[in-house]
Computed example of a mutant assay.
Amino acid sequence: MKIRALTTAALLSLVPAALVAQEPARKPAPEGARVYIIWPADGAVIPGGALWVRMGLQGMGVAPAGSAVAGTGHHHLIVDSDLPPLDEPIPNSPNHLHFGAGHTEARLELPPGRHTLQMLLGDENHVPHDPPAMSERITIIVPE
């Protein structure tokens, strides 16, 4: 008996398309949806580096991660980093902070220096909406 090896592509062609894992589809964001940083303001000087970031959202609702409710999402704060790929789940790292319980404010402690902050709303699977609901990137300064 002769055994023939199948390539991954050949094996996948035998599996119904509905069973093949796919990337999460991006949920639509309502027209005019807006994410913004209420505080701190762009250019703020934060002595000591401890601050509360207050997150704003207009035209959408906040729902915890895992809650599949149309027109909602939860906040992610991007600290000192570029935006992640917008068609993939937002990474969870020291530079990509998740607020999956529906937080609208968060306490941060930053070291001295210049820092950037940007909000990005994610759906129940942490995937940005289409179009992405995100704030402007701001810069804050923590003096020595």
Rank of each mutant, 00 (worst) to 15 (best):
G113K: 08
R137D: 03
A41E: 14
P30E: 11
V62E: 09
T8A: 12
T72C: 11
A9C: 02
G113P: 09
S93P: 04
A44G: 11
V79M: 04
H129Y: 07
L6T: 08
M134R: 11
L117A: 03
D87N: 15
K2D: 13
P30I: 10
A70E: 15
L108P: 01
L117C: 08
G56Q: 09
E88G: 08
R34C: 12
D123M: 03
M134I: 12
S135H: 01
I141L: 13
M119K: 05
D123H: 01
A18E: 15
P28Q: 08
E124S: 13
H103G: 04
A5T: 11
L57C: 08
P94V: 01
A63Q: 09
I38V: 14
G102H: 06
I37E: 00
W52S: 10
V62Y: 07
T116A: 10
G59P: 07
T72A: 06
I46W: 02
G56Y: 04
H98K: 01
K2M: 09
P143I: 09
T104Q: 14
V53F: 03
G43Y: 02
K27T: 15
H98I: 04
S93Y: 05
V20C: 04
T72K: 04
R26F: 02
P91M: 08
D42H: 03
L6F: 13
V62C: 13
P143T: 13
M55Q: 04
P30G: 06
Q118K: 01
N92V: 12
T72W: 07
G71Q: 04
V69W: 02
K2F: 05
P94F: 05
L77K: 01
I3M: 09
H96T: 12
P84Q: 07
D123Y: 01
V20K: 12
M1W: 00
D82S: 11
R26W: 04
L77S: 06
V79E: 02
E144H: 08
A50K: 06
Y36Q: 12
R137S: 05
P28I: 05
L120P: 02
A18M: 11
L108H: 06
I37Y: 00
R34M: 08
E105T: 07
Q22E: 15
P47E: 04
V127G: 02
H103D: 15
Q22D: 13
Q118P: 05
L11P: 07
G66T: 11
A68R: 15
D130E: 15
E136Q: 10
E105K: 10
P47V: 06
S67D: 10
R107G: 00
N92F: 12
E23K: 13
A25S: 14
G43Q: 10
P64E: 06
L51K: 03
S81R: 10
P132L: 13
G122W: 00
G49F: 00
M60V: 11
P112D: 08
L97P: 00
T7L: 13
P64F: 02
P89F: 03
R34E: 15
A17E: 15
V15R: 06
P16Q: 06
T116V: 14
P132I: 10
R34T: 11
P112A: 04
G61V: 01
A41V: 03
L19R: 13
A50D: 10
E109M: 08
D87F: 11
S13T: 13
